[in-house]
Nucleic acid binder design. Structure first.
Lengths: 227, 227
DNA sequence: GGTCGTACTATACCGGCGTATAGTCCGCTG
DNA sequence: CAGCGGACTATACGCCGGTATAGTACGACC
């Protein structure tokens, strides 16, 4: 009831920090819209008014959580790189369990339309594109699309974490589940699944289609939804 | 204002069908929680009460939309396979633009926690697992995880469609954008990105970690959120 | 032609939401 | 000790969500 705090550093168990931490956890779990101000303050053990007093609004709190989580993430990663504790980022969560929560948070933030998370996404795409250009330029002719798809798939898989977890029988946001997922991911990256010839044949068919498609398409187009 | 209908088959422009179609479009666009009953009925050009009259509740409407979309999807795919119009499912959207809307819908349904969509996900994982066991058993030792990750990545990437689209400069839910995405995806499947030796080395490090991890982990664990 | 069922509207209800405001407690400073 | 400011609570306001209900228009059937 009265908020079980784990191991907060001493000067950080102020009510303000408790609200922020509760918000991060709840935003990560249920998303921004799925979390009410009252949920947060109840989890933090304070009154709803205090949230407004400290943060002004729910939106402002969200932005503060965004920057906080993002800062902490790069902080943790740099720290680990400094200590040289690991070469493989996939193994990171098993060392620093809090980062799994942050992964979850950022994933949700992407779905919720957070601008900070979106720009982080863009940064990752840019970095991936550079990495490909330098280390594996032959994997695709369209480096940009390749990078975007890769980042989108990785973050998207986390967005589907409950379904993936259900299929796996393990929560991918636990160290154990995350490792299993990372293992499959490694296989994915290292072994070609499809025959390249078959793919180029398919691509040729796609190219043929591309020229012959009607200009209209679905999506947010208000027309063109048939029965 | 009064609902621009595209090309509904005649007996299907009943108000009931209009409500369903509007709901499908709005659910796909904004998700279940982001769409209000009044939004739907306004888009369908009817009064809010009529939704309740025909469907009973918003939740019941959602379920009907779910089954409708899923049925239509397999119907369309079977039809296309029957006609032999294509061998490559990635090119499908350019032929049948409505299916892009359905893709979007199912993706959102997965995020919204729809049971029908979840069981569709499970089916796809099972099918993928079988396919791998038969056609590419050497890509991984953990066929289940590989299949789950693969399906999760594909559907998840669509969940991140706005971010991927932003990075690409094209909406991936248009025929043009979808083709570009599919192209990158094909590269992804056909060319190994990482050196297998490097991966097996990383995997060995992961195995070492797996035995030495603390039993606790983040996620929905109420404790263990540090400062 | 009366009645009955169905499609449909108008409007009200109730709860939960984010937010605003008034007020209390309390440690610090002059 | 007076008072002042920040942390914090209690409570209320306005809005909007899904839902419920009463009522209307109209075609079908006996």
């Amino acid at each position: 009831m009265t908020r079980p705090v784990g191991d907060p550093s001493f000067e950080d168990l102020t009510a303000r920090a408790r609200i922020r931490d509760a918000a991060i956890r709840l935003f990560a779990e249920r998303g921004m819209d799925g979390t009410t101000v009252r949920d947060i303050t109840q989890a933090a053990g304070v009154s709803p008014g205090l949230l407004r007093h400290h943060f002004g609004s729910k939106e402002a709190l969200r932005e503060e959580c965004d920057t906080y989580v993002l800062d902490r993430m790069i902080e943790i990663k740099q720290e680990l790189v400094f200590d040289g504790k690991l070469a493989n980022p996939a193994a990171l969560p098993s060392i620093h369990p809090t980062i799994l929560l942050y992964y979850k948070y950022v994933t949700q933030a992407l779905l919720d339309g957070s601008r900070s998370a979106a720009s982080m996404f863009d940064d990752m795409v840019a970095l991936t594109e550079q990495w490909i250009a330098k280390n594996a330029p032959d994997v695709s002719e369209d480096h940009r699309a390749y990078a975007a798809v890769m980042v989108g798939m990785q973050s998207g898989m986390l967005a589907m974490h409950n379904h993936v977890s259900r299929a796996l029988g393990v929560d991918v946001f636990t160290a154990e589940g995350h490792l299993r997922m990372a293992g499959a991911l490694a296989d994915f990256y290292s072994h070609p699944l499809l025959d390249p010839e078959l793919v180029t044949k398919a691509r040729r068919a796609m190219d043929a289609l591309r020229s012959s498609i009607p200009p209209t398409a679905a999506g947010d187009d208000p027309a063109a939804e048939g029965a």
